[in-house]
C-alpha cells in the first residue's frame, strides 16, 4: 500500500509539473511550484518508510519550511519587483524623516 501511495504522489508531482510548464500566468507557476513542494515533503516522508530510513524526515521538515520562503520570495518579486520593500506599515521614524 505504501508503494501505491508513493506511486500516487509521483503521478501528482508529474501533473503539477505540467501546470508549471504551461502556466499560463506566472501566478499559476508559483501555485504549481508551491504545491509541488508540499508533494515533495510527502514523498520524502513516505519514501523514508518504504526504504526503512526514518532519518529522512529531517529533510522533509526542512522542505516544509524552505518551500514557504521560496514561494513568498517569488510572490513578492512578481508582485512588487522588489525584494527590499517592507510589507508592513511604515515605521514611525521613517514617517518623520520623509515628512
Amino acid at each position: 500500500m505504501l508503494l501505491g501511495a508513493t506511486a500516487a504522489i509521483m503521478v501528482a508531482m508529474v501533473l503539477m509539473l505540467v501546470r508549471a510548464f504551461i502556466g499560463p500566468s506566472n501566478y499559476d507557476r508559483i501555485l504549481a511550484a508551491n504545491s509541488f513542494g508540499t508533494k515533495v515533503v510527502l514523498f520524502i516522508a513516505v519514501i523514508g518508510y518504504l526504504f526503512g530510513r526514518p532519518a529522512y524526515l529531517d529533510i522533509a521538515i526542512v522542505y516544509a519550511l524552505i518551500n514557504f520562503v521560496t514561494t513568498i520570495a517569488l510572490m513578492k518579486f512578481f508582485r512588487y519587483r522588489s525584494l527590499q520593500a517592507s510589507l508592513s506599515h511604515r515605521r514611525v521614524g521613517e514617517e518623520a524623516r520623509d515628512g
Binding site: 520562503v69 513568498i72 520570495a73 513578492k76 525584494l83 527590499q84 517592507s86 510589507l87 508592513s88 521613517e94
Partner: peptide, 9 residues
Amino acid sequence: LHALIFGLA
C-alpha cells in the same frame, strides 16, 4: 524571510 516580510531596512 524577515527581510522579505518586514523590509530590508
